[in-house]
Design a protein around this nucleic acid. Structure first.
Lengths: 368, 368
DNA sequence: GAGCTAGATGAATCAGGCT
DNA sequence: AAGCCTGATTCATCTAGCT
């Protein structure tokens, strides 16, 4: 599980290990100012209700573990303050801390961090390419999580590999929104029954980007909620040291074996961390939001046989039919499917143009 | 600045107006439970000064000279609590509140909202297609802002136009990440010198999506930090009422003139895509009453594995099982629940059709 | 092997009306 | 007020198994 770092003559015994126990207690084993970067994925305090089923009646495997249960916001805040203070002692003055969370907990975490004097450099949103849908149709698909990147004080001068990030991002400044898939497939650790070992394993691509942007080779990376060790695995791969705190034996075992299998380094990781470079998607509704079309606008097909009217929500009305441009396009033609972008046209001056041309206008305003 | 709503006989004098003054004070003019949706873009640059007042109208002196982190955060929290409580009184129990902010303030706002009992439905990230770059190269490009969508309590049942948003988004569920350009060009209000009137004018496209997703035609939309009136302009355009609070005369003037220029969209095009949930309920027994099915009719599932017989009261008999179409459908499959309308089929000519198709026939014959 | 289909699954604060 | 019944609701991706 360990790897050599020749320039460190006497390696502390806690380096590149997982300390068993609650993180506040476990961190007592570390000296002051001994850590360069912290990555923390604390419990989210989800407060779930009853069971949730998919439309096909299968049950959603919820995160209902005991470690995610708190009696109140106050209790959660106290827990948060305690681990942040413990982390603060071991973090170097110019070190960085990353915390990830969802709307259930991230606002509380961020406020406590500010109260303790941490200085926020950025919040970063992880946009999931493949989030779980909202099965009951009662909310927006919860398609992102939030990371806070902060320093121990306003005076801190953290590592930020600006040029590496810019190169990484096709010579554009790296933005605060990162598009990455969730952790599935071979990367997801499974037990002997084929069940996931940890309910909330983070993708390695996320940790790559965190460590690549705000740490240097040989740095010490602390993860106070180590879980199945994504932080350790990526740290080792990138030539960083790690130290983790974890209470559950099953997670420690899985993480240790996982990190043992990691071979540090070449450059093949770059590909993994690249976001998708496909054309940005522009929903038809955008044309109304941005004023390129107004509710009541009339669309026709290229030959003018069918006429439809646009409503405020981006739906079309055409005789008895209503729905998306694709659905109504299919219905009026009596076909199974239709690309509404090329089927429907709009008058622009004297000429008829496919609405796809308006989509191009929107895209031209998007530098990405 | 006002527009007529003929179906409201006595329009309150505050409706479709901007109330001058601090929002906590101004909101005293509104009765309890009088607002359907709140959109709030609270100030968050503490160092600009002049923005913060305690509930007793004394000025907060936190950011006068030296930056005092703790006292200024505390003052901001007090300010936040005060306006949120004032808003809470006028918001209907099933109303929605949206708050937008950046990492400077959104964590504090979110935590205070939770402390006051607001229930968060989603956080939404607005991804800017054209953000300001990070000139010093010390941070990630700050390319997003965060919105919190919440309700006054966990029991609230807010308006959420799921089907309209899905149509809007090319027949995919609307996600929690919205890609929209910032407010520039002709949309950006300029004064006589060509300077922008308001430092943080929000794009109309953002409000369009907020109001389309969580409000209905004729709803009352409150913006306690009205600024140059983007909320009012989009509300009027979409056939909603507005009320705003604003302290600065210059903003009130610019907003009033702006809203006067807005032409509301035609009623016909404000109708939105409706889902099945809004269709009138048709009990299964109706199919027998109307003669579409006769007692003794045989139903099967799509693959013909299960056969059931319809009795005069609309119950099914299937082997040992009997009961409603839903109950028997669940029982024969050994599932907890089943939508009998789509599970059970009937022969119509040569083809098998779900009984749901018969329900459509009944609905088409119903008076609107 | 390639290609296809069916099935499984992911940090989720996920219903509403009537009796 | 609590309980019961109706019936509405999913996207991207990976794996296993079959042709």
């Amino acid at each position: 599980m360990s790897f050599t770092a020749p320039h460190i003559s006497t390696k502390p015994d806690w380096l590149d290990t997982i300390i068993k126990g609650d993180c506040v207690e476990a961190l007592n084993k570390l000296p002051d100012n001994s850590v360069d970067v912290v990555f923390a994925d604390p419990p989210y305090n989800l407060q779930l209700g009853g069971d949730l089923h998919r439309p096909d009646h299968s049950k959603v495997d919820a995160c209902d573990d005991h470690w995610d249960q708190f009696s109140s916001f106050k209790a959660y805040d106290e827990f948060t303050r305690a681990w942040l203070q413990a982390v603060r002692r071991v973090l170097k003055p110019n070190g960085s801390i990353w915390v990830i969370g969802s709307y259930h907990n991230i606002f509380r975490v961020g406020a406590v961090m500010q109260d303790l004097g941490f200085w926020i450099n950025n919040d970063v949103v992880w946009l999931k390419t493949n989030p779980m849908p909202n099965f009951r149709g009662k909310r927006f698909t919860n398609a992102h999580e939030t990371l806070i990147w902060a320093c121990p004080s306003q005076e801190s001068k953290p590592t930020f590999n600006y040029d590496a990030m810019k190169t990484f991002n096709d010579d554009l400044q790296m933005r605060s929104d990162w598009v990455l898939p969730i952790c599935t497939g071979h990367e997801r650790l499974k037990d002997d029954n084929g069940d996931k070992v940890h309910p909330t394993q983070k993708p390695e691509s996320l940790l790559y980007r965190v460590l690549l942007s705000t740490s240097n080779q040989g740095d010490v990376i602390l993860d106070p909620f180590f879980g199945t060790g994504t932080t350790g695995a990526v740290a080792k791969k990138l030539g960083r040291h790690f130290v983790g705190c974890e209470r559950e034996d099953a997670y420690i075992k899985a993480a240790s074996e996982r990190i043992d299998r990691v071979t540090p380094a070449n450059d093949d990781f770059l590909a993994m961390t690249q976001g998708k470079r496909s054309l940005p998607r522009v929903p038809f509704g955008n044309l109304l939001e941005t004023g390129l079309l107004t509710p009541g606008a009339e669309l026709t097909d290229a030959r003018g046989r069918f006429k439809a009217t646009v409503r405020a929500d981006g739906s079309l009305i055409c005789g008895e039919h209503s729905g998306s441009i694709h659905k109504v396009g299919a219905l009026v033609q009596g076909q199974q499917a239709c690309n509404g972008w090329t089927f429907w046209h709009v008058k622009r001056g004297k000429a008829l143009e496919p609405v796809d041309a308006l989509r191009q206008v929107v895209r031209s305003q998007m530098p990405r």
